[in-house]
């Protein structure tokens, strides 16, 4: 079942002579429970597209429909509520609040939604078990490693059981081991909880965890590839597509690799 429909979305930044066309007439559809990767070189428009789909930004033209609701026609207040109820976000820079401890960071979305204490407790225990972070709950954010911080960010994104998870370069700040741990968790969540995941990345290894990857170049959808089930094959496909788009060196992948 199609959950997200993006229709002819365009977005410019700047004015007149200095205007930059971040997105040009992009259209795409995302199935419920799909793990979609959005790839492209830096400045291609990945984050802008993610922001517009997640209703954090508004397009200049076009429509974004989620569960048949036209998000572009909703009031900011309604959108904020919708985001908090149905969406979760993981950012490259984690966006954790240093003034709160680990547990407080995780439960923040539920507390903002005025969830009952009992539910908060249940969900925290569930996330602790799912992501294996029980021993971190009373620690300060400053005391965590980068990988742990991203896990906490993921726990916060998932605490309110979102239908859609947006991840913007989630492995960008992580070493390969931490990145693998996080991606395995995301895949598990996608499969177990049937959460739709939209992930922007420029890393082929990260993208290989997706069920489908769309490639953006200069603000337009250039191509897309679907994961047949074999991750190594899919990884190769992604690398090849990167070469096609950017001439290899664009993605730090040498031509003779």
């Amino acid at each position: 079942m199609v959950q997200i429909i993006v229709k002819n979305v365009a977005k410019d930044f700047g004015k007149k002579k200095n205007a930059v066309h971040a997105l040009k007439d992009i259209s795409l559809e995302v199935e419920q429970g799909e793990f979609l990767g959005i790839m492209g070189p830096s400045g291609a428009g990945k984050t802008t597209l993610l922001d517009i789909i997640s209703s954090n930004d508004r397009p200049d033209h076009g429509q974004v429909l989620i569960d048949d609701i036209d998000m572009t026609q909703q009031h900011d207040r309604e959108l904020a509520k919708y985001r908090r109820r149905k969406m979760g976000f993981i950012y490259q820079s984690f966006e954790l609040l240093d003034s709160l401890n680990v547990q407080e960071n995780i439960i923040l979305p539920l507390v903002l939604n005025h969830a009952p204490k009992k539910l908060i407790k249940q969900r925290v225990e569930h996330m602790n078990d799912l992501l294996n972070i029980s021993e971190l709950k009373n620690r300060s954010i400053d005391d965590l490693s980068l990988g742990q911080k991203q896990l906490i960010a993921a726990a916060r994104a998932l605490i309110n059981n979102p239908e859609i998870l947006f991840a913007d370069e989630p492995t960008g700040s992580l070493d390969s081991k931490s990145a693998t741990v996080l991606l395995n968790y995301m895949q598990m969540i996608n499969q177990r909880e049937k959460t739709t995941i939209l992930m922007a990345t420029h890393d082929a290894f990260t993208a290989s965890y997706c069920s489908r990857v769309i490639f953006i170049k200069d603000g337009s959808v250039f191509s897309e590839i679907v994961n047949s089930g074999q991750r190594t094959d899919f990884f190769e496909q992604v690398i090849n597509m990167q070469r096609t788009i950017g001439g290899g060196s664009y993605f730090n992948v040498p031509e003779n690799n």
Binding site: A80, E95, L97, P109, L112
Partner: peptide, 18 residues
């Protein structure tokens, strides 16, 4: 630091009113 905290809250999903 304080600006970053407020920005993060916005990203986490706080409404303008909040």
């Amino acid at each position: 630091y304080e600006w970053r905290q407020l920005k993060t809250l916005k990203k986490v999903g706080l409404t303008e009113n909040e």
